[in-house]
Write a protein that binds this DNA or RNA. Structure first.
Lengths: 177, 177
DNA sequence: ACCTGAACACCGTTCAAGT
DNA sequence: ACCTGAACACCGTTCAAGT
């Protein structure tokens, strides 16, 4: 909804920073990618970033938003039906950002903005998983706990990389009616 | 197995550092508890700690070892039988160190020592959980995936605090034969 | 062997000054 | 409004020097 030319320019610059941050954070991790290096990648002085973002965590939130939207768009295009395969796809996509997932969990307490993002993300994820499990035929009475377990299992697969076969077995167990 | 007086002194001092680090790391978190503050707590100069530990991550590994032994001793004294209650107990005990769990996952790639500790910990945890689930009557063919799911679910409950009732429902679902 | 003061190379962030 | 040079208050770690 940028109206004025000035706001458009500002948003464009902000997007440029987020794009560079996305590459750096995803490829090298949040801690390893310093504000200095990010600024160099964008072509500005380090403190210039603070004109566009309150702090480094706010840059991270913007990166997470961008990453989430991109994956979400693909998820919605997924062929329906085989819930095991759909869960596996989610686990595989999240795998690209597993460093970031660990960072988010580690920084929750320090950054209220990140904490808020995390809660929104989980609310959304649980809603979607609820649909998937219902689709898979999980009994309605058990679905609350089963949704949580599925979310945690998918997160666990990020923190602890497993061979493909084991991942599939886990997703199948999660989708078992 | 400290033999000489000198080795005894050294070990005592090391233990002293670990005890102080344990308090600081558990109460305030690994990142928030700086080497400087740890040194002050022990009563030495910051760089003195490097005489006893290679780096800050090695202090963390020592803290994790100490914490794990303490909890393990209690676990072995637990009344057998109700697997749901036993899982819940584990989740509750781990809750004391949930900041540390997040830190471990976030630092795995940076610290080989931490990574090694983490793998040993999971190997042990899975062994124990395997026994619990077998006890609960989980079918042998499904037990591999179910063990992983249980580990991940317990870890998930640390990263995302839940009301007691939900935790119990999750543990019950995990223990369901 | 054990401990330290001083220094190093960073880090995220702030501030006063420029345009 | 946007950007910067310089500085601030940290951080973990190293090194040469002391005992």
């Amino acid at each position: 909804m940028a109206r004025t030319k000035r706001e458009q320019d500002r948003d464009a610059k902000r997007d440029e920073i987020v794009a560079a941050a996305r590459r750096l954070f995803v490829d090298e991790g949040f801690e390893a990618a310093s504000i200095s290096r990010l600024a160099t990648a964008v072509g500005v002085a380090p403190n210039t970033l603070y004109w566009y973002f309150k702090d480094k965590d706010e840059v991270l939130v913007a990166v997470l938003d961008a990453e989430f939207s991109a994956r979400m768009a693909e998820y919605l295009l997924l062929p329906p039906g085989d819930v095991t395969e759909r869960l596996l796809w989610v686990a595989q996509q999240l795998d690209r950002v597993r460093r970031l997932v660990a960072t988010v969990h580690a920084r929750l307490e320090k950054s209220p903005a990140l904490n808020a993002w995390h809660e929104r993300f989980h609310a959304l994820s649980e809603e979607m998983l609820r649909v998937e499990l219902r689709q898979a035929g999980v009994a309605e009475a058990a679905i609350g706990a089963r949704v949580k377990i599925s979310v945690f299992a998918i997160e666990g697969m990020l923190a602890h990389p497993l061979p493909e076969a084991e991942k599939r077995a886990i997703c199948a167990a999660l989708a078992a009616g």
